[in-house]
């Protein structure tokens, strides 16, 4: 059963990822990205990270991709890019070689280090089927987040406020007609 889920979700993830980089139209790329993000959410469920799966769907697929689509639609940059023209001649073969090389190095490292990793060194994940508590994953993350990582949590909230303020400043239209640098201020 887990194998079936794995194969299906891998197909979603890799198909969506390839779709992001080969589709001409940015909207199609964004929709392929949704496919990949849902596949990752499925993976999270099968890896017993139920809370993160929900967050993945809500934050990534719900918020981030919608933000992408808003920007694509509002700016009117939705004309497709002709992927057949290649402005820098050797760029694509070079990028492909680098990508294949990176994948090869990573996969080799994983296969080599497969037996060296010591499993089960942590305190263990609370499983809903074992504890009989359907909130056990959320409870465990919350306990970790609000005890060990509470300072990081507060810092992240500051980061979000800074991001919101910065974006409002960046995307505000300048009151006066911009001369040369006014628009990005």
């Amino acid at each position: 059963m887990e194998l079936f889920v794995f194969v299906l979700a891998s197909a979603m993830i890799l198909g969506g990822a390839v779709g992001v980089i080969v589709r001409n139209h940015p909207v199609h790329s964004a929709l392929s990205l949704v496919l990949t993000l849902f596949g990752v959410a499925v993976m999270f469920v099968s890896l017993e990270a139920h809370f993160l799966a929900a967050v993945q769907v809500i934050v990534y697929a719900g918020a981030i991709v919608v933000l992408f689509l808003f920007v694509i639609m509002l700016l009117g940059v939705d004309q497709s890019e002709n992927l057949m023209v290649e402005p820098i001649p050797v760029q694509r073969p070079l990028a492909l070689i680098v990508g294949v090389g990176l994948a090869g190095v990573l996969v080799t490292a994983i296969v080599q280090a497969r037996s060296a990793v010591q499993t089960g060194t942590g305190a263990g994940l609370d499983n809903a089927t074992q504890t009989g508590d359907h909130d056990s994953n959320v409870r465990q993350i919350a306990r970790s987040l609000f005890s060990d990582y509470v300072f990081a949590f507060e810092l992240v909230s500051v980061l979000l406020v800074v991001a919101v303020v910065g974006t409002v400043l960046l995307s505000r239209r300048p009151a006066r007609l911009p001369d040369d640098i006014g628009a990005t201020r």
């Binding site: 089960g120 060194t121 942590g122 994940l125 060990d148």
Partner: peptide, 14 residues
């Protein structure tokens, strides 16, 4: 997340 399950450690998910 995969390593969090492998190691049995919730910190990966955090």
């Amino acid at each position: 997340v995969a390593l969090a399950r492998d190691l049995g450690d919730i910190k990966g998910q955090t």
